[in-house]
Simulated scan of single mutants.
Amino acid sequence: MQVLQVQLEIRPDPAEVGRARRWARSRLAGSGIGADESLAETLILLVSELVTNAVVHTGCPAVLRLSLPGTAAETATVRLEVADRSAQAPVPRWVDGEATGGRGLALVDGLADRWGWSCEGTGKRIWCELDRCPEPGPATPACTGRTPAYDGLAYEAV
């Protein structure tokens, strides 16, 4: 399966979060992921959370990357990455019910099939993956959580 990798430069400005969501939505349509699919809605929420974290907590420019299936594959893995120039590790926070923030990484943990982070140069990369699965039914079993092999890559930089 061919995978399309796209990226967007993010300025350290809260207005960039909305721009990142709009950009991600526009890229999903070209990969065969419908805007009404739960995968699309979840991905946009994860984009919002990870870009917000980069903008608010680092004050540095960042890069948003998406790895999307190149065709309308019924099963595929979508990967989202946000790389920034801050070496500060992401720290999940525990907040009470009254707090208006601090739940971003808990949402990522709860919504993504896999996630993690790694050091990258003088900064870091936070990533998460979502598996696109067919609706389970008598003829289509649910996804098994396997990681697909990426045979070819296409690349677009914005």
Rank of each mutant, 00 (worst) to 15 (best):
E156T: 10
E9M: 12
E98R: 14
V56C: 09
W117R: 08
D131L: 12
G101T: 13
A139H: 04
A35R: 13
Q7T: 14
L46D: 02
H57Y: 15
S26T: 11
E41P: 03
R21Q: 13
E81F: 01
W127G: 09
K124S: 13
G152M: 07
V82H: 03
L130Q: 07
A106F: 05
T147R: 15
T147A: 13
L39E: 02
E156M: 13
L105E: 04
A62N: 06
Y150F: 11
T52H: 07
L45E: 06
R114I: 01
L107P: 00
G116W: 02
D13L: 05
A157H: 12
D84M: 08
G116Y: 03
P14W: 00
A149T: 14
R93Q: 14
V47T: 07
G110A: 12
A139M: 05
G123D: 04
A72C: 06
G70M: 08
L8W: 04
V91L: 12
V95A: 13
L80N: 06
R114N: 08
G104N: 09
A139V: 05
C133T: 10
I10G: 01
I44S: 01
C128T: 04
A20K: 01
E9S: 14
E9C: 07
A29K: 12
G102M: 11
A35D: 06
A83K: 07
A40Y: 00
P90F: 06
G34F: 03
A89E: 10
G116H: 03
E37H: 08
W23T: 00
L28A: 07
P148Y: 05
T100V: 12
T42Q: 06
S67G: 08
A139Q: 04
P134W: 02
R93V: 13
T122W: 03
L111V: 04
A154P: 01
T122H: 09
P134S: 10
R132I: 05
V158C: 11
L64S: 04
P90N: 08
T71R: 13
R114P: 04
R114Q: 11
T147I: 14
A54D: 02
V56I: 10
H57I: 09
A99R: 13
G97S: 13
A20I: 03
H57M: 09
L111C: 08
K124Q: 15
W94F: 09
G70D: 04
A20M: 09
Q5H: 14
D109N: 10
P141Q: 05
D113L: 06
T140W: 03
S26Y: 06
A54R: 05
S86R: 12
V108T: 05
E37D: 10
A72G: 12
R93C: 10
T71I: 07
V158M: 08
G34Y: 02
S31V: 05
L64Y: 00
T122S: 14
W117N: 08
R65L: 09
R79H: 04
T71A: 15
A62E: 01
A72P: 03
I33P: 00
I44Q: 00
D131M: 11
P136A: 02
V55F: 01
W115V: 10
E135W: 04
S48F: 02
L4W: 09
A24P: 05
L153P: 00
G152Q: 11
E120N: 10
L130R: 03
V63D: 02
T122D: 11
A112Y: 02
R93L: 15
G110H: 05
P136C: 01
L68W: 01
D131V: 03
G123I: 11
L45D: 09
W127S: 12
